[in-house]
Write a protein that binds this DNA or RNA. Structure first.
Lengths: 159, 159
DNA sequence: CTCCTCTGGATTGATATCAAACCATTATCG
DNA sequence: CGATAATGGTTTGATATCAATCCAGAGGAG
């Protein structure tokens, strides 16, 4: 998703133009990174699919689709689709929620956990190479600012 | 496109885990920002469509689709599709290249230029609000590092 | 000049994404 | 209790994106 601005800013007050460049860079980085990771992922996993497996493996499964959609910042419709694909691959199981007839629960299978581990292993070479361009100290400088920006966007979205 | 990692890192050497978080943040920011911009764009313009109009307006039109695809970092197939939509909206015209029978040229129309200006005007309120979370100085700190990362990803991609 | 290759575009099929509309179930309120 | 509202999931239709494939025109090697 290439973001606004060919690579420079537009006819706008200086501060806004700078922000436009920021969003532009972020868009290009996201596109390049997504592509780089998906090309090495096992089982044809996409980043969206991996994100679900990784969340379940690290922070616990047995969540409802609605909870996962909130966490991953996608609509429920989007999640329905991706969960369906993971289910076909037998990486998760979707079981009805006993307490709430509307709801379901997402359960990680053993194969799903293995796929997630394999995906992380496959991504390692990219990350190791990336360290040359982005040494630890630099990432630590970047992260807090980006987290602030993300939080602001998230808050501004709903307001 | 939510990026790797629920929001934390994975079972990996520390530096790689940090980088994973970086890509994760960037993915979420991109998703939120794309959404925020597209909701206010006039004429149902998408970011991809705006990027083409903006490039033509700022850096000159009359380029071939192949050149634009390289500049915008998308495949030619993707560009074919988006150019088709812009053409339907009468924001560009696609004319045959006189010198090369295979090639075409993308020309910005007057309506296209107006749509691009209107899109920038529509994005201004978002950018102005964003300045609160991201003051000028902070953006200036971020940009060089992100540009480095983008350049590295671009170089690593082709190698 | 003729073949063979390269390059420019278009097409196809898959995935992700959103908004909007939809149905089922639960929760709330009068 | 019964009607209304809120919530959980799904579906549909649009767009963007990629890889792979395909065709047509241009360029080079004999």
């Amino acid at each position: 998703m290439p973001e606004p601005g060919g690579s420079e800013a537009a006819a706008a007050p200086d501060d806004e133009a700078l922000l436009l460049r920021l969003f532009n860079e972020i868009g290009i980085i996201n596109q390049l990174a997504t592509n780089a990771f998906e090309r090495v992922m096992p089982h044809g996993l996409t980043i969206a699919q991996f994100a679900i497996l990784n969340h379940c493996a690290r922070l616990g499964d047995n969540k409802t689709p609605a909870q996962l959609a909130d966490i991953l910042q996608v609509t429920r419709g989007t999640l329905t689709s991706t969960l369906g694909r993971l289910s076909e691959k037998r990486f998760i199981r979707i079981v009805p929620d006993e307490e709430d007839g509307r709801s379901k629960r997402v359960v990680l299978t053993a194969a799903g956990r293995r796929a997630r581990d394999a995906a992380i292993a496959a991504a390692m070479p990219i990350l190791s190479r990336a360290r040359d361009a982005m040494p630890r100290a630099r990432v630590q400088d970047l992260l807090p600012a980006l987290e602030d920006l993300r939080r602001w966007l998230d808050a501004d979205r709903t307001s």
